[in-house]
Write a protein that binds this DNA or RNA. Structure first.
Lengths: 343, 343
DNA sequence: ATCGTTTTTCAAAGCGCTTTGGATGATGGA
DNA sequence: TCCATCATCCAAAGCGCTTTGAAAAACGAT
């Protein structure tokens, strides 16, 4: 069933049927109603490709997922982010066009989006400290929103980000206030913008209290359970082991907990842990009392915000750059306590 | 830059340029080369919508992600499945069209895929024991592959599944052989086909050894850390607590481990745990020795297989239904040991 | 040189929609 | 009664590609 056929059945022109369906005013209400009903009965839905060709819009948002050959990981927050963004897309009739590509082909994926006119806008995930994608998309003139930030020039593109620096600064202070002096940092890859900012926050808090920064207490890497375990284990085995950890993700913290427990220590008593919590739906940080004391910032909400922002930009291209900086919420849970007395 | 312009530059007709670009034989090799080079130089890429309109193909595979209002969870294996499938899609020039919809609108999403001609095929995720989507897609005549199975009529559609029944049967036997008699089952929602089959395998193994099935030792629910914790905790608090758990996912097992540890017991000594391991990239089950003894079946590999199957079906519509039944691999790790002697 | 083949190229139609630029008829004020 | 106005509808062009059917060019054989 296509427009022509439907128009035929109704004894109307394609023009009128199209207008009736798309809510244009040049059609009598009675006619519109008749058209709508017929469309329903015959289950008519427009061919999106033809519609796209004619209108110039594709009603899809592009997300590129780079599959690195080196680190085999898919960003674990991706599913929840998409769920959040998807809610908004869905409400507005948009779909997601996902391009999974080897990371070396990422640039080409965006170019294909552009030339293929397959998407109306793009969301950038996991920005690095200096991220070439921003310049690329600006050049390609595709509307885009960055989930996170990338280094400087923050006012030259649209982004939604968590105040990672402040979040980790405050979390560090929280541990310092509890008397901890040796605080380990289990961070994400510091080529990532967010991880770099977190380290800055951590370092700034220590410096402000004249606590030396010990490189042995800082680890950065992929945020897996395994790596959380390994790095925590290594630090705990040092001559002056940390009494607290600041951990960049729930999955790493689970690994850290395993290491703490393997070392015969008790979480929240011998060793405190504060995490950044993206509030992933399948790794919730407890129901009432948080398992881990956490700086929480729901990634799903970030997804919603990014999507809303992007759709606004698409509808309204020539406005100022938009930036949203979210503050995390510090939730005190059961994984933190006063620094143990020294023997 | 569109075809017309490119043809203009080259002094050729659109026909010839199109044919040169798409590898048709009716064009001189020298001409083809010239066209290809010009296309590269001018960074010409075809408008996918126009191409789709003309060819009837969209070079996209549809995946529908239902956002349940009741259980707020996004399937955590989704990201890894997509990564696997995406590799194959990517190699063949396909993208993924993701439709995130409220679960009540799921049927409509598939109908839109069909009428909007936005996808060439579809993958069904997380099939329920009786799943209406199979009849729907069959009726809509969209090529599709099910990741999993749905109840009976297994030979009437295409699927890739893990032999969940056998996997859990064998895992249960493994525990029985270690002397465990009271084995708790922490399962996924048993409206899901895979969970039902796992329970069957578990039950069959117990029955074969004349061990009564105790409903108090069986829990089914969403596969979150939290629920793994709660259900394990409840069972451990019983008068005759289990000495082993069979757990349907890594995240639940992490919760179970927390419950075991909270109960003052030691994993692998006082309480054994065997899990189903989807081998998710950010929740790897250890690097050398598995943390948990596990029936492993990489979901990423399943994604690849589903995608390959679907693309074959699209290229070759009128072939027999294809079914692939994967066996999981039992990896003995550190979470299992002989049943503790009774006092 | 001529004619039938084969190779190479092209003009134009068509995919299903939107949108421009009328056309038609009804309405109402002078 | 006549003409301007407005509401309603339509025919046809156009979006950028593929593909059909035909023409032009090149080639080989006679």
């Amino acid at each position: 069933m296509n427009l022509k056929e439907l128009a035929g059945i109704l004894g109307l022109s394609q023009t009128t049927v199209s207008r009736a369906l798309n809510g244009y005013p040049e059609v009598r209400e009675a006619t519109r109603k008749r058209v709508m009903e017929a469309a329903n009965i015959h289950n008519y839905k427009p061919d999106m490709r033809a519609k796209g060709l004619a209108t110039g819009r594709s009603m899809a948002i592009g997300h590129v997922v780079p599959l690195s050959t080196q680190h085999e990981m898919v960003n674990p927050v991706f599913a929840d982010f998409i769920a959040g963004a998807g809610e908004i897309y869905s409400d507005n009739g948009y779909d997601i066009l996902l391009s999974v590509v080897a990371d070396v082909d990422e640039e080409n994926a965006y170019r294909k989006f552009r030339s293929g006119r397959s998407v109306d806008g793009v969301i950038i995930h996991g920005p690095h400290a200096e991220d070439p994608r921003i310049a690329l998309l600006t050049e390609l003139n595709i509307p885009f929103v960055v989930h996170g930030r990338a280094g400087d020039n923050e006012d030259r593109y649209n982004w939604v980000d968590v105040n990672n620096r402040h979040s980790f600064l405050r979390a560090t202070e929280f541990l310092l206030d509890l008397g901890h002096k040796r605080i380990g940092l289990l961070n994400g890859l510091e080529s990532m913008d967010f991880a770099r900012r977190r380290r800055e926050g951590y370092a700034a808090a220590l410096l402000a209290r004249d606590i030396p920064i010990d490189p042995d207490l800082m680890a950065a890497g992929e945020m897996t359970e395994e790596l959380g375990f390994r790095n925590a284990k290594r630090m705990l085995a040092e001559s002056a082991p940390p009494t607290a950890f600041l951990v960049s993700s729930m999955s790493m913290a689970i690994g850290a907990r395993r290491a703490i427990s393997d070392a015969g220590k008790t979480l929240g008593r011998d060793v405190s842990v504060v995490i950044h919590d993206d509030d992933l739906s399948y790794l919730k940080n407890g129901s009432n009392i948080p398992i881990f004391t956490a700086a929480r910032s729901p990634v799903r909400q970030a997804g919603r915000l990014c999507a809303e922002m992007l759709l606004e930009i698409i509808a309204n291209p020539d406005t100022e750059y938009r930036n949203v900086l979210l503050e995390s919420e510090l939730m005190v849970g059961m994984s933190t306590g006063p620094a143990p007395k020294q023997d």
